[in-house]
Computed example of a mutant assay.
Amino acid sequence: MKKHIDKILIFIASIVTGALISISFSENKTDTFFSMKSIEYKDAIEQRNLLYKEISDLKESNNEIMYKLRSYNQGEEKHQKVMDDMKLQLSDYGEIAGTTALEGSGIVIKIKDGYYDISESTSYEIERKTLHATDAALLLNELRSIGAEAISINGYRILNDTGVRCDWAFITFNDNNQSYEGQPFYFSALGEPDELEAALLADGSYLNRLIIRGLEIEVEKRDDLYFSPTNRVLDFQYMQREDS
């Protein structure tokens, strides 16, 4: 009788153990399933939002194009509207490329080598107080980075690919070796005068480093700046349109 009772207890214990294992496995599987589904759902929501934004941008762009087309096709002067719009775009491209004269507000930075006595000053002092081609290049990059819309040095129009060289006491340019600019150097920049001045004189700016080195520097805000068009012939040998 005792053996039968033991067998029955073992049988019941086996059933209970199996049930517990089954329940535990089922819960883990359910958690994993819902966890994976929630991640997939989150990714799907993000993807949907991106698609909605792309569709919205395309609709806005399409509306602008349709508006232009309607303006071109209305009235007797539709061809003149097309020509006027093309001229306006050509003017914008000319301003970016530097082939169009510009005028407006901005700043002028006057730079001269600092004072030194050639017979008494050390070579280190002379080097520190001299404006080098590297200094001019870094200052040009700083002007571009703070938002200058046009730049010139002593009236010479600086383009996006213009580089500077040092030729004794003069600055020359990599795109026109016939032009020599001497001291004082006037760096003119077109833009909002207060913002340009604040950025140039901020702690850590390159212009501040030149001031600390002892160069003679003056910054003047102007409302009557003029930038003549470049006299360069823009001949690109390797650049091609993607759809050409």
Rank of each mutant, 00 (worst) to 15 (best):
I5K: 00
I5Q: 01
D6T: 13
D6M: 06
I8H: 02
I12M: 04
S14Q: 09
G18A: 14
A19L: 09
A19F: 03
I23N: 05
S24T: 07
D31C: 00
T32D: 12
T32L: 04
M36A: 13
M36S: 15
M36R: 04
K37I: 03
E40D: 13
E40G: 12
K42M: 10
Q47G: 08
L51H: 02
L51Y: 00
Y52W: 10
I55F: 12
K59F: 10
N62M: 04
N62R: 02
K68L: 11
S71C: 08
S71Q: 12
S71L: 11
N73S: 10
Q74I: 13
G75V: 15
G75T: 11
E77G: 06
E77P: 03
H79P: 03
Q80E: 10
K81C: 06
D85K: 06
M86A: 11
L90K: 05
D92K: 06
Y93W: 12
G98H: 01
T100D: 07
A101V: 05
L102M: 10
I107W: 07
I107T: 09
V108G: 02
K110W: 15
I111C: 04
D117I: 00
I118F: 08
S119H: 09
E120V: 08
S121W: 05
S121T: 06
T122W: 00
T122D: 01
S123T: 14
Y124T: 13
E127L: 01
R128P: 00
T130S: 11
A133C: 05
L138K: 12
L139Y: 13
L140Q: 00
G147H: 08
A148Y: 04
E149I: 01
A150I: 03
A150M: 10
I151A: 00
I153L: 11
Y156H: 08
N160M: 11
D161M: 00
T162N: 05
T162Q: 06
V164I: 04
D167F: 03
A169C: 04
F170C: 12
I171E: 02
T172D: 14
T172N: 09
F173Q: 07
N176G: 11
N177S: 15
S179N: 10
S179W: 04
F187M: 14
F187K: 09
S188D: 00
L190V: 10
G191M: 11
E195H: 08
A198D: 11
A199F: 08
L200E: 09
L200P: 07
A202N: 07
A202R: 09
D203I: 13
D203E: 15
G204K: 14
L207V: 03
L207F: 04
L207M: 01
N208L: 05
N208P: 08
I212G: 06
I212S: 05
I217V: 14
E218I: 15
E220N: 06
K221M: 15
R222W: 09
L225P: 00
S228D: 10
P229E: 02
V233A: 11
Q240E: 12
R241P: 05
D243N: 15
S244R: 14
